[in-house]
């Protein structure tokens, strides 16, 4: 094993680390940078608690190595907003009570922000009837958020929060 230097751009700041190649992006964020907003749920890409936005796209940070992202821009929940200055999606989750225990919430919010961008970019989903006509609907959000599990089953309120932000974007 060779400790390997790498630089990540996390929430707008360059951070240099020297890592065991086995370090996942998730462990680099949590254990090395102490950005513990991103959660470790299943550690196998099944639950979505570790979702972060890398180079503008949501991914499971548990299923990728930090070294594979040298130079990449990474946005975590800490980068989206703060308690004093919440991102509209964070505010909407609070308003609509889109959680109970809150463990999956950072992943849900990162995913939700990216989902609205994906719809805006015209990326189709399994429930898109005409592949060339992509538009917001609750059904689209349910399908696209299926990689984020909430064991408290706050799903109706999560959908309401995302709908709120989507409607706000249109207004």
């Amino acid at each position: 094993m060779t400790m390997t230097p790498t630089t990540l751009k996390v929430n707008g700041k360059d951070v240099r680390m020297t890592l065991d190649p086995r370090t996942t992006l998730l462990d680099a964020l949590r254990e090395h940078l102490h950005l513990t907003g991103t959660k470790k749920g299943c550690d196998h890409g099944q639950c979505g608690a570790c979702t972060v936005i890398v180079e503008g796209r949501r991914i499971n940070s548990c299923l990728t190595l930090a070294l594979m992202h040298d130079g990449d821009e990474i946005a975590t929940i800490e980068g989206l907003g703060s308690a004093d200055k919440m991102h509209p999606m964070q505010q909407a989750f609070v308003t609509h009570d889109g959680y109970q225990c809150g463990y999956c919430t950072p992943g849900q919010i990162c995913s939700a922000v990216a989902v609205l961008e994906e719809i805006e970019a015209g990326i189709p989903s399994h429930v898109t009837e005409d592949l060339n006509k992509v538009a917001y609907s609750d059904a689209e959000v349910r399908e696209r958020m299926s990689g984020n599990i909430c064991r408290c089953a706050a799903y109706p309120n999560i959908i309401a929060a995302i709908r709120d932000v989507a409607e706000g974007d249109k207004a």
Partner: peptide, 15 residues
């Protein structure tokens, strides 16, 4: 397109 979209999750398909 349909086959791809029926597989995995949004996060996994991005990677």
């Amino acid at each position: 397109s349909r086959a791809l979209l029926s597989g995995a999750s949004g996060q996994l398909r991005n990677k």
